[in-house]
Amino acid sequence: MYEKKIPELLDCGLIVTLKVIGGKWKAWIINCIMDGIRRPSAIHRVMHAVSPRIINLHLRELEEYGIIYKKVFAETPARVEYWFTETGESVLPVIKTLEDWGNQHKAYIHRNQAAYKEGSCVFLSEQ
């Protein structure tokens, strides 16, 4: 297995937060579970643009960090659901704040991104 040569600096709270919820898909996975989508197959359906392997990798990482836990039901066929730990519950306001910020500023970001791609490197107004 690959082992990083440079040790992680986990003394900074921001670095720890970004390690746990950062990345391309973790916040969306957390949001799905927050919305009551708990089964891996249901998460895969909602996040259809993301490969199931990547979703499962992030679910395992969130479980490793103690943000979620896997509840396995003794049924045939087996049923698995993901739930938040107490620490996981404490990250939900952070995710909600990030979502609110994105919703508030997405039009501005899109306009500036388009302007930048067109070669006009000016910051457009918020309106």
Rank of each mutant, 00 (worst) to 15 (best):
residue 124 L to E: 10
residue 44 H to L: 07
residue 58 H to T: 13
residue 112 N to P: 03
residue 74 A to R: 07
residue 60 R to A: 10
residue 58 H to W: 03
residue 57 L to W: 04
residue 83 W to A: 07
residue 94 V to A: 10
residue 43 I to N: 08
residue 37 I to M: 07
residue 2 Y to I: 07
residue 125 S to D: 10
residue 15 I to P: 01
residue 17 T to I: 13
residue 94 V to E: 06
residue 121 C to D: 04
residue 81 E to Y: 11
residue 74 A to M: 11
residue 37 I to N: 08
residue 92 L to A: 01
residue 117 K to S: 05
residue 86 E to T: 02
residue 44 H to E: 12
residue 51 S to E: 07
residue 58 H to D: 15
residue 34 M to W: 14
residue 79 R to D: 05
residue 71 K to G: 06
residue 72 V to Y: 09
residue 101 W to I: 15
residue 39 R to F: 12
residue 94 V to K: 07
residue 78 A to V: 13
residue 121 C to L: 06
residue 117 K to D: 09
residue 73 F to R: 13
residue 68 I to K: 07
residue 75 E to G: 00
residue 73 F to D: 08
residue 119 G to Y: 14
residue 123 F to H: 12
residue 83 W to Q: 02
residue 41 S to H: 05
residue 115 A to G: 02
residue 110 H to K: 10
residue 121 C to T: 11
residue 48 H to G: 03
residue 3 E to F: 11
residue 9 L to A: 09
residue 67 I to V: 15
residue 114 A to T: 10
residue 95 I to T: 07
residue 82 Y to S: 08
residue 114 A to S: 03
residue 43 I to C: 07
residue 119 G to D: 05
residue 4 K to Q: 06
residue 77 P to W: 02
residue 28 W to H: 10
residue 109 I to V: 15
residue 105 H to G: 00
residue 87 T to R: 06
residue 123 F to S: 11
residue 49 A to K: 06
residue 107 A to C: 02
residue 66 G to Q: 13
residue 102 G to T: 04
